[in-house]
Simulated assay, not measured.
Amino acid sequence: MILGDGLSNLCLVASRTALDMYRKSRRDAAMMPVAGGSASAAASLDTVAASFDERRRTAAFLKDEIPVSVAMCGYAGLAALSAAVVPLIFRQLRFHHVVILYAAAPAMAFCNAYGCGLTDWSLASSYGKLAIFAFGSWVGMGEGGIVAGLAACGVMMSVVSTASDLMQDFKTGYLTLASQRSMLVGQAVGTAMGCVMAPAIFWIFKSANDVGDPRSLYPAPYAGVYRGIALIGVEGLGALPEYCINFCAAFFAGAFLLNAFKEMARHKRWGVQQFLPSAMGMAVPFFIGAYFTIDMCVGSLILFLWERSNRRQAREFAPAVASGLLCGDGLWSLPASVLALLKVDPPICMKFFSRDDMAKVARVLK
């Protein structure tokens, strides 16, 4: 569902962008030319901006616009560097494996940035697991498929998570009137520092503790989880649970068709697209629990009622209210951890059983 929702939106954005560029080229051909791509973009957005603040933010954000050619050349250069260096570190992963990884990563990065914008939750690990299955089964057990799958997972997660983090930074920069280029430079400096500091810190931890030992202070439980996924991946699709691929394909197609129906409803002006659910919003709770969807549902209901009573006030203060709710939800993890350490149990416990188990519980309670 996550992949289907993200890829369908990628197709929609690409098609809309191509259509808008085509229409704009025909319209500009009949009008006087405008010098400067960013100025023309700012002027077109200025006409549809809803308020002075949005016009000012748009103009400030587009003033130091990063050229597309710079972004493409930078990505191609980093991909070439990785294709040359990564196989030297992990010899199970070949040159062409890294090239294919970087060719597929932009689509996955768009999906993750889109999902992170919707849910404020980065799902980079999900795309990393896809890389484990794909490249682990491709390389095979005899050629070191476990290490190859885990290395491919690391490369995919690095690209995908960086994309969502950068988009979050750009969103913050847009709201705070910061420059695109300053945000990108800051991200590059932080990444360069991480390339030096992260291995050094890991080496210190590794020297002082038995990292990975279940009896040590740092058991690294996720290492065993990802190795188990890689073990399943190298055995191919036959090692997955029965009907797993069928479920995956069905819900991928369902998410794709749901977004297609939304787009058709918007184009036909049926007025029902706001009542259709988000596939990404339905998929995320399968990873982190249903409480996330309940929070989104309650928040959307509050915003809906607020807009019905005072649309202007809701538009101006909704981001502040949403930020406060997110901060409160995050800060609650601290007292929740303290209560867990003190072994304080909640006064109410709710469980759901099957019909047979419920009958057994009823007989015991009688």
Rank of each mutant, 00 (worst) to 15 (best):
A283K: 01
R26Y: 13
S300H: 10
D329A: 06
G271N: 06
G140R: 00
V298E: 09
L303F: 14
F261C: 02
L341G: 09
S179M: 03
M167K: 12
P285A: 11
A265V: 08
S333D: 12
A198K: 03
L334N: 03
V344Q: 12
L334P: 02
R266L: 09
L331Y: 14
C111N: 07
G328A: 13
R26P: 04
R27D: 10
A80R: 07
I294N: 04
K351C: 05
A230W: 11
L130G: 10
F304M: 09
V68D: 05
L81C: 08
V68G: 06
E54N: 05
R56H: 14
F133P: 00
D28L: 09
M141N: 12
T176C: 06
L276M: 14
S25N: 14
L258T: 09
L19C: 03
G36P: 00
L365E: 13
S44K: 06
T17C: 10
G299F: 13
A208C: 10
K129H: 13
R315F: 05
P221F: 10
A41D: 06
Y291A: 04
V185I: 15
R181E: 06
K262S: 06
A200N: 05
G77T: 14
S122K: 04
M183N: 15
F287L: 00
D120M: 09
M1R: 04
C327W: 14
W270I: 00
L175R: 15
R215K: 08
L331K: 09
L326A: 14
A198E: 08
V338A: 11
A84T: 08
R269N: 12
P285W: 04
R227L: 10
M157S: 03
L217I: 10
D345T: 04
S137K: 02
V48K: 09
R269D: 10
P277K: 06
V361Y: 00
P241H: 10
L93Y: 01
S15E: 08
N310M: 00
G37E: 10
Y127D: 01
G212M: 02
N112F: 03
K129D: 04
L19E: 11
D46T: 11
G271R: 06
S122P: 04
F95N: 01
A35S: 09
P199Q: 13
T172M: 10
S8T: 06
N310L: 02
L93V: 07
Y75G: 02
M156L: 04
W306E: 08
A35H: 11
A290T: 03
M1K: 03
I288S: 08
A260Q: 12
P214Q: 07
P106N: 01
A250G: 04
A80K: 05
K366Y: 12
K262W: 12
S354P: 03
A322R: 08
G117N: 13
V160W: 12
L237W: 08
A322M: 07
G186L: 01
D295Q: 15
L101I: 08
L93C: 04
H267Y: 15
M157A: 07
L166K: 03
W138L: 02
F352P: 02
S309W: 11
G36D: 04
R312N: 14
L81T: 07
A279T: 01
